[in-house]
């Protein structure tokens, strides 16, 4: 019997996990699909751009409520689907199924958390072990992450990436020549694209206090846009209290889509709707009401590995 993606999607929309064997098959198929995609995918507006989600599944559902469901709305997700939140598996399972079901209408860019090293520290690994009892699902997903694209260009005008720019990349064509089918390296252009941040106080590139990627200033942005004939850079990667931030005379925007981040930061979130004439509208939203419901908590039988310290 073939893979019934619609059934998987409706199961996930009810926040029910898919069977391990199904995840394996979905990840295999998604790898084949992603393998054929360029490191720079060209798409057309209208499209709705989503920033970091970090396993906040109910807020992802809220995004579909606000922005429209697939395939009626085109979506571009800018990475950081997993870690920190309670429902990384549900989140990445749903997004993967949507990508496989509607490959032209859903784009998934790689974030710095779509990595073996990072997910082992920040929760996704723990969550996989806790919810599936073994590491298989974590392996299927992290192997698939190696195939995610690095960037998207909307209507030849807006360059979209998870983190930011790299001092070794001047022209977008240079991104196309990277060998991206691998774990995110510690340094080099691929690391920079997923790790870098803008810094308003600088003009040029500088060492990032994160210890990976760079910070980059207004002059770097101007030059990059000029060389590539573009008008705007769109990225995620940094928490913004208002859900978004626009810098450098409207040349760069940050979109952040995890409201009340880690269930504590009290921040707003947004999705960015890019219209056919290039107009940009930040649709701001707050945490989804389901987050408050006690019943939404994972089953009490799912104990954290760390509790072993207390036995």
């Amino acid at each position: 019997m073939g893979l019934d993606l619609d059934a998987c999607i409706s199961q996930l929309l009810q926040k029910q996990l898919l069977a391990e064997s199904l995840i394996k098959e979905i990840c295999e198929k998604t790898k084949e699909l992603l393998m054929r995609e360029s490191n720079v995918i060209h798409i057309s507006a209208p499209v709705t751009v989503v920033g970091d989600i970090h396993g906040q599944f109910y807020d992802l559902i809220e995004i579909f409520r606000i922005g429209g469901y697939c395939p009626y709305t085109n979506y571009l997700f800018l990475g950081d689907y997993v870690d920190r939140g309670l429902f990384s598996i549900e989140t990445i399972s749903l997004l993967t199924c949507l990508k496989l079901r509607y490959p032209e209408r859903v784009q998934l860019v790689r974030g710095n958390h779509e990595s073996r090293a990072v997910t082992q520290t920040y929760g996704f690994y723990t969550e996989c072990v806790r919810k599936y009892g073994n590491t298989n699902v974590w392996h299927y997903f992290t192997d698939m992450f190696d195939y995610l694209t690095l960037s998207v260009v909307i209507d030849d005008k807006i360059f979209c990436v998870h983190g930011g720019l790299s001092p070794s990349i001047h022209s977008i064509d240079q991104i196309k020549t990277l060998d991206r089918f691998r774990e995110i390296p510690h340094e080099g252009p691929m690391a920079d694209l997923v790790w870098s941040d803008p810094d308003q106080d600088k003009d040029e590139f500088a060492i990032s206090p994160r210890g990976a990627g760079y910070t980059f200033g207004g002059e770097v942005v101007k030059k990059f846009l000029h060389i590539n004939g573009m008008s705007h850079i769109l990225r995620a990667h940094q928490l913004c209290m208002e859900g978004y931030q626009v810098l450098y005379d409207d040349r760069l925007s940050t979109v952040w889509s995890a409201p009340n981040y880690c269930y504590r930061c009290g921040n707003m979130a947004s999705i960015l709707e890019v219209g056919v004439n290039g107009e940009r509208f930040f649709n701001v939203f707050d945490a989804a009401p389901e987050n408050d419901r006690e019943s939404s908590r994972p089953m009490a039988s799912e104990r954290l590995e760390n509790v072993l310290y207390f036995l």
């Binding site: 408050d292 006690e294 908590r297 954290l304 509790v307 207390f310």
Partner: peptide, 19 residues
């Protein structure tokens, strides 16, 4: 600081309370 209940926002502390 957490707008959600402890069970929700800090499952680990919740789990530890069972010790």
């Amino acid at each position: 600081v957490k707008t959600e209940s402890l069970r929700w926002s800090s499952p680990m502390i919740d789990d530890i309370s069972g010790v």
